[in-house]
Structure formats: C-alpha cells, structure tokens
Design a protein around this nucleic acid. Sequence first.
DNA 1: TTGACACTAGACCGACCGGTCTACATAATG
DNA 2: CATTATGTAGACCGGTCGGTCTAGTGTCAA
Lengths: 204, 204
Amino acid sequence: MTAMSSPSNAPGTRERLIQAMSNGLQIGGFHGVALNDLLTQAQAPKGVLYHHFPGGKVDLAVAAIRAFVTHVKTALDGLQATHGDPFQVIGAWLEQAQKALEQGAFERTCPLASVALDSTAEDVVLRQAVARGFAEIREYLESLLEQAGVTGPRASALAILLVSGYEGALIQARVAGSVTPLEETSTLLLEMLRLELTTKVRSK
Amino acid sequence: MTAMSSPSNAPGTRERLIQAMSNGLQIGGFHGVALNDLLTQAQAPKGVLYHHFPGGKVDLAVAAIRAFVTHVKTALDGLQATHGDPFQVIGAWLEQAQKALEQGAFERTCPLASVALDSTAEDVVLRQAVARGFAEIREYLESLLEQAGVTGPRASALAILLVSGYEGALIQARVAGSVTPLEETSTLLLEMLRLELTTKVRSK
DNA sequence: TTGACACTAGACCGACCGGTCTACATAATG
DNA sequence: CATTATGTAGACCGGTCGGTCTAGTGTCAA
C-alpha cells in the first residue's frame, strides 16, 4: 500500500472530490453540476478523478451519496447520545435541519432527493444508491421508533412519513426562500408522533 | 388575430411544446431534458420554439409549470364536484396520484419538485414560477380544509404538510420503484386529517 | 538501483447543448 | 394585388460537457 493517502489520512484528494460532489448535488443536482467545477473546487486535475472513480461522474456521485447517508446516520447517533428520548432525537434532528437550511441560504437540499428527481430510468446505479440510502435512513428512524415502543409495521409507516415530510418540506422551503414550510411540517409531524407515543405508552 | 391557432383551437404547436416540456420535466428535470428531444417529440423545428417562447428553454419551462398547476387545480375541481366532503376529495386526490404513479412506471414525478431541485439560485424566474405554483396548490387545499371547518392558520399548516408528504412520498416511490411509500404516507396523512376534522366538528 | 505501483497532472477530443439566423408558407388587411 | 402578421422550417454556431489519453512524480519492495 502507498505510504499515505488511502483511507483516513489528510483531507485526501479522493475525499475532497467526494465532498465537492456532495456540495454539487445539494445545490444543482446530478445534471446541474459540472465536473470541471468540482475539479476546480477540489483543486484537482481531471486525471485524478478517473483514477479514483473509473466510472466517472456516476461513480463519484454514488460515493457522495454513500458518504452523505453515513454522515446523516452519524449525526443521528450523536443526537441519540445527547437525547435519551427517541422523540426528542427526532425533534432535534428536524430542528438541526432547519438551522442547516438557513445557514445554506436555502440552496442546499438533500442530495438523495435531487438525484432521485433528475435521474432517469437508465441511471440504474444512481437510482439504486439513492434507494439504498433512503432505506437505510428509514430503517434507522424505524428502530428509533421501535425503541419508543411503537410496533414494527406502524414504526415503518411512520418512518416513511417522516422522510416524506422532511423531503417535501425542504423542496417547498427552497423555492419559497423561507423556513416556514419546514417549520410547519416539523410541528405537525412531531405532534403526530407525540400522539402516537403517548398512545403506545398507555398500551404498554 | 390569425385565423386559427392562438388560444384554444387544434392541438396547436405551442401546446404540443408545452406538453412535451411538461413530460420532460417530470421525467428528467430541467437540466435533464434536451430541447432537441422536445422538438422531436412535438414534431416541431427549432424556430417555432423561439417564436412562441422568446425566452427559450426557461420560458417554455415556466409555461409548462403554469399549465401543470392549472391541470392540478382543474383535477381537484373535478374531484370536488363528485365528492362532497373535502376529506374525501383529498383522499381521492392521493388515490389518483397513486394510480398515475403506477401507470407512469414510476418515472413521472411532480414537475414542480424536479424544477425546484435542479434549479440554482440564479434561475430566478424558474424558481418564482415553482414557488407560485406551490403556493396556489397550498391555497387550494387550505380553502378546502377551511370548508371542512378547520381554522385559518391550522388549515394553512395542514396544507403545507399535505404537499410535503405528497412530494416526499413521490420521491421515495420513484427510486424504490414501488407505490408503498406513497401508500403509507397517504394513509397516515388521511388518518391525521380525519382526527383533525372530527375534532373540529366537535368544537363547531 | 530499479521496477512496479499509486497517484497527480493537464492537454485534448468528439458529442451535444441551447440559441441564433435566414428563408418560406399562409392568410387576414389595405 | 400588395402588404404585413403570424407561424413554420431547419441549417448553423460557439460554448461546454464528460471522457480519454499521455506524461510526470514519489515511494514502496526486490
């Protein structure tokens, strides 16, 4: 193995490329982001991209999606460490999303969503990566809800709703240039969750 | 005025272009769709596009967005005519969306969402068109809920949630290649709505 | 030392994109 | 009939895209 670089070292070129692609996907989507821009942003020449990602743009995008999902799960892990109650974890997650939205001036959305929408049926690998990402996040939320006493199928349905509401709210917030859609959606989502949890606790 | 063509006549070239762009936006998004493809699809040469839409691609997309929103509102009007209860109208709307999703083999999504995500901050007109479209749909749902006795602010919040859930569910359904996300989301959304309406009726 | 290998580096290319341009058909208007 | 509006038609262009190619660099192992 080479002296340095591969996994876990400096901000390695490979990682910078992934980071740049992640940014690009959040801002402009898969078709909207130009490879040359990413390379400029990552201070890297063309060849290095082809070296690390033989599959080119698609390959890099898949890596960025994977990295993003990992990032989300890590963030949720962190929240889980500071908040005992699953309900509070989800509340904190939505709150955090709102702050991120404001900080990003409403230009950053979920890369999963953007890739999901501007990919066509031919982009099989891209779609699969997104599908898997969503599934992982849903599973995480699902297990969180189950910890709070919600039964399997119900937890699964609620996890889907949480993701639906979150993604849909981000879309509306972006074009409106306002946090209101996310705010209102979060409030109602949490309201519903609270209702669910108290009911479940009663029946426990 | 010319003998024929302008508004409401044959399937006019202009309308065919709008229709093609609408398809394109639903399938590949703004950046994902090629003008040449649209022209082939609409059996029209380049010049005719420039004639009808001096602003080019953006102009055409705005028209397609407008047309789509009108189409949605018309569809809701139709549902309202056959279903007296606002709750049933929304239920029928979600059901219809599910059928459309299956018929389109999960490739057609809401053009509002796709444009919202693959447009950047520079695409002002595009963003505004989408923002207005979302606002109009929300207002429609809001008035529907108010008819059912929900008070203003609450109706507004619920309208936002409905759109959020709907859009987010479509995204998940698309990449999953399954109606399940939309099914589950719809069920929970309607459940919440029913709870809301019975509560309101009681307090009426 | 030297060969192999991982990585960096950027010039280059064909394809395609959106946009512009000029030419033509049709038909209402004077 | 001539004129002008409106709409149809497609060749053409500059710019940019993603992808490929060849060359250079540093560091291991033999």
